[in-house]
């Protein structure tokens, strides 16, 4: 119990600090800071507050957390498909994707049917989408169109659903009735910290850009340095995790950081390909749920399965 409050307290303290710094930076006109990066920092901090509230609810109402993640997922998928060109032949397939597979995935997560939700999308949905698009009779660029819908469903729904699934994961070394909520809280906190640290390290030490054409600010120094720093933060929070050894908490944190930047890179590539300019008016104002979630989407399934494999109760 004390661990729950301690973790919650630390996160709230960090968030308040970040909010304060953001507001302070906004008022400093003399520092000649790039106002856009200050604004993007502030919108990120706001997203963190939102996450913290959702996850705070997770301590008391796991089902509600699953529902909220489901809504986020729905919205992210909406943005993804809007960004991706689909043709009229895909309409019926998309209808099933939005109104059957997405709610079904989260329903199964809430009911804790791991055997079913872990394959619902990669097996049933993927084959269904291909067949449904074929039935529509439009074969132009068939594989490309099918792959777009499948990828959107995989990233926005399947991957993201493993974050709330952490609430039902049984581990060997779990203590207290809120240990699962704490695991989810730890996971999301580490993703957000990883993003922040990679940003800071990139700014301070960044020299070698990974892929200039995709993301001109993401550097090897930022990614690896950020991952290392995230591991140290994870180490400091090791008491709150179900990992029995200190180095395991650090290694899991580094894993989260690496996956988070992989997710951000992937989404950046998709956005570059689609040309954000041409679709800017569509997502403008909603400020992109998907671009806040990209890191979580990639890190969640990997974190879930590695935890399950090494630390999960056998047969659970």
């Amino acid at each position: 119990m004390i661990k729950d409050w301690a973790l919650l307290g630390i996160v709230l303290l960090l968030l308040s600090g970040a909010t304060f710094v953001g507001r302070w930076l906004q008022r400093q006109t003399s520092l000649a800071l790039d106002q856009r990066s200050v604004n993007s920092f502030n919108s990120r901090v706001n997203a963190w507050w939102f996450f913290t509230v959702i996850l705070g609810l997770g301590f008391f109402q796991p089902t509600l957390t699953v529902l909220l993640f489901g809504l986020l997922s729905f919205w992210a998928l909406r943005e993804f498909i809007t960004l991706t060109p689909t043709s009229l032949g895909d309409h019926r397939a998309l209808f099933w994707v939005f109104f059957f597979f997405t709610p079904m995935q989260f329903l199964l997560v809430a009911l804790d049917y791991y055997d079913f939700y872990s394959i619902l999308i990669p097996v049933y949905a993927f084959l269904f989408i291909a067949a449904r698009v074929a039935i529509s009779g439009d074969f132009k660029r068939f594989l490309e169109r099918v792959a777009k819908i499948q990828f959107g469903l995989l990233v926005c729904v399947y991957c993201l659903s493993f974050a709330p699934a952490l609430l039902f994961l049984k581990c060997k070394h779990m203590d207290g009735s809120y240990a699962n909520a704490r695991l989810l809280f730890f996971f999301v906190t580490m993703v957000l910290i990883a993003e922040l640290l990679q940003f800071i390290f990139g700014r301070l030490f960044g020299k070698h850009v990974i892929a200039e054409t995709v993301d001109s600010t993401r550097t090897w120094e930022g990614t690896l340095g950020g991952a290392g720093a995230t591991a140290i933060v994870g180490l400091a929070l090791y008491w709150a995790t179900p990992f029995p050894e200190w180095w395991q908490a650090a290694a899991m944190s580094a894993l989260i950081a690496v996956m988070a930047s992989a997710g951000a890179m992937t989404l950046a590539a998709i956005k570059c390909d689609r040309g954000e300019v041409s679709t800017g008016t569509l997502i403008e104002g909603h400020a992109g749920v998907l671009s806040r979630l990209d890191a979580v989407c990639f890190a969640a399934p990997v974190f879930y399965h590695v935890t399950r494999y090494f630390f999960g109760l056998a047969g659970s």
């Binding site: 729905f74 909406r78 943005e79 009229l88 309409h91 998309l94 209808f95 008016t281």
Partner: peptide
């Protein structure tokens, strides 16, 4: 009106909830 033809195309009766924009 942008993107509405994908949300409810001609001949379909069930909408798909994508995003659209009005200028």
């Amino acid at each position: 009106i942008n993107n509405m033809n994908r949300i409810l195309p001609r001949g379909e009766f069930l909408p798909v909830p994508l995003l659209s924009s009005l200028t």
